[in-house]
């Protein structure tokens, strides 16, 4: 290597995890996941296994919360990871973290699943009874409380109750903002604002994404 390199500007060396309060995932695991994703895109199955093991509980937990039916949720999780494998080369680190990319794919697939299932069963009550064996908040309560989960819970307290509820119904319920508006008895068109404001507060409280 004979190329000239600029002299570091006196900043302390990177590598201790960067800024931000202690958390169990973001600072070190993030780049690691991006690296695994990159290697997966080159066909490295071992890297993909590692990626799967690092992220499957979080992804599946999300899918299960949205889809609710355990057997269907496992199908969706499987589809998601296959999609991640296929699409790994399309991940663009400039646009966000690997984890966010993964969760975005997983969330979309889970929502697609519940919406298409609903379209074919159209408000059949027996269907709803059958597929809602999990009590809304029991899932969250039973979840293990990692340090990061604690931080998220704390950050969520910065949201107004309506923002919190709107974000939850949209994200975990898979409902559209128009449906959320009706469910929360909000004027038409305001649920989208609540969702956006809630996410902004969460983002800023957690110090992610910019």
């Amino acid at each position: 290597m004979t190329t000239l390199r600029s002299v570091p500007s006196g900043d302390p060396p990177e590598g201790t995890g960067g800024r931000g309060p202690a958390a169990d995932l973001p600072d070190e695991v993030g780049p690691r996941l991006a690296e695994l994703l990159h290697r997966s895109s080159l066909g490295d199955e071992q890297a993909f296994v590692e990626l799967y093991d690092a992220t499957s509980a979080r992804l599946h937990g999300l899918v299960l919360r949205v889809v609710r039916n355990p057997a269907q949720a496992e199908e969706v999780t499987q589809e998601v990871f296959l999609e991640v494998w296929r699409m790994a080369s399309r991940f663009d680190p400039a646009r966000g973290s690997a984890l966010s990319w993964l969760m975005t794919i997983g969330h979309r697939k889970a929502v697609d699943r519940v919406r298409s299932a609903e379209a074919s069963t159209r408000r059949d009550t027996s269907y709803h009874q059958q597929t809602q064996p999990v009590d809304h908040d029991a899932t969250a309560d039973a979840a293990h409380t990692s340090l990061e989960a604690q931080r998220v819970r704390t950050a969520l307290q910065a949201l107004t109750p309506v923002q919190h509820e709107a974000v939850k119904l949209a994200y975990f319920g898979g409902y559209t903002h128009a449906e959320v508006a009706t469910m929360l008895d909000l004027p038409v068109g305001t649920a989208k604002t609540r969702i956006r404001d809630g996410l902004i507060r969460l983002r800023d409280a957690m110090g992610v994404g910019q």
Binding site: L64, Q78, A140, E148, V208
Partner: peptide, 23 residues
Amino acid sequence: DSLREAAALLPTTTETAPSPAVR
């Protein structure tokens, strides 16, 4: 992008491992 980053934190509260069959 930044809001997705925030939303991606929500599943930290619902982690559930899939069965080994899925893996």
